[in-house]
Design a protein around this nucleic acid. Structure first.
Lengths: 149, 149
DNA sequence: CATATTCTCGACTAACTTTGTCGAGTATAG
DNA sequence: CTATACTCGACAAAGTTAGTCGAGAATATG
């Protein structure tokens, strides 16, 4: 269906959550899961992936949890999504690793999709987790304001 | 994995095939399947979908087959793909039919993806089946030329 | 009319991906 | 030592993709 899966959704929201609520010590998986409405045991896998790819650092034991491995300003949405979803290439023959130039039958449409893919990557690179976190903070505040009326 | 399925591939190639080899009478499913290397019984489903959506017209009986229902110049790639794959919206909340504004949790990334989706649709609208057929004809001719050396 | 040809339609299936759950193990603070 | 938290891999349910198959319908031809 050509759609982003919940991995990309959940995982990016976890990063945003860490950007907002991290800062004073690690954030526990259970907290993220509760706030973001993500099944905790599923979130486990996503955090593991983000850890493997250097987006998140975790510590065990009491008081442990997860935190961003580097500043949210330096994490772009593209790389986060690629970590979670794998390549976003709409065609296998556009994959970066496809150096062997696998003779994909789709190559007839390749020229159209190559431009679309490039443009998509460009735009996703221009957005950082910090940007998304800022938007989310605003959203939370305006919600708060509405309720307090 | 955010990737176009073989439906979009096979189906569009069937349309291109009809644009190239149609013209003097209907083209049989078996011919398309052979030329485009598509399982014939699977192609059946794709042609049915394209027929339902007015891209293809078919006639039964001996000498029957399939032909484009309107000029290839007036068929854009976007509509063909949407017929075959369903909506290409990367997020459910960007779906055109989502007028009830389903409160998708992904909405945090929505502003990023909305622009990407619009741009994608714009580009896919600008390409017609006739354009793709022209490219394919060139490809076939240069192949021919290579072999004849 | 009989027959061969070609499309039509729905049921069924195999493989794969997504979306989880669970339990045993590991590290660490106190 | 013990409670707390993360880690890792096996497993499973549900949905999608990619088909296969067979009975039936329309039509050209003789």
């Amino acid at each position: 269906m050509m759609r982003l899966s919940t991995k990309g959704d959940y995982g990016v929201r976890a990063l945003i959550d860490l950007a907002i609520y991290g800062g004073d010590g690690p954030v526990q998986r259970s907290e993220i899961a509760r706030r973001q409405q993500i099944p905790e045991s599923y979130l486990d896998h996503l955090l593991a992936q983000l850890r493997r790819d250097g987006f998140v650092r975790s510590t065990r034991g009491p008081g442990g949890g997860h935190e961003l491995a580097r500043p949210a300003e330096e994490m772009c949405l593209l790389h986060a999504l690629e970590s979670l979803e794998g390549s976003l290439a709409p065609l296998a023959c556009l994959e970066d690793e496809a150096d062997d130039h696998e003779h994909n039958v789709l190559c007839g449409q390749q020229w159209v999709w190559r431009d679309i893919y490039d443009e998509t990557r460009r735009r996703l690179t221009a957005v950082s987790i910090a940007d998304l976190a800022a938007r989310e903070r605003e959203r939370l505040q305006s919600r708060q304001a509405n309720y307090s009326i």
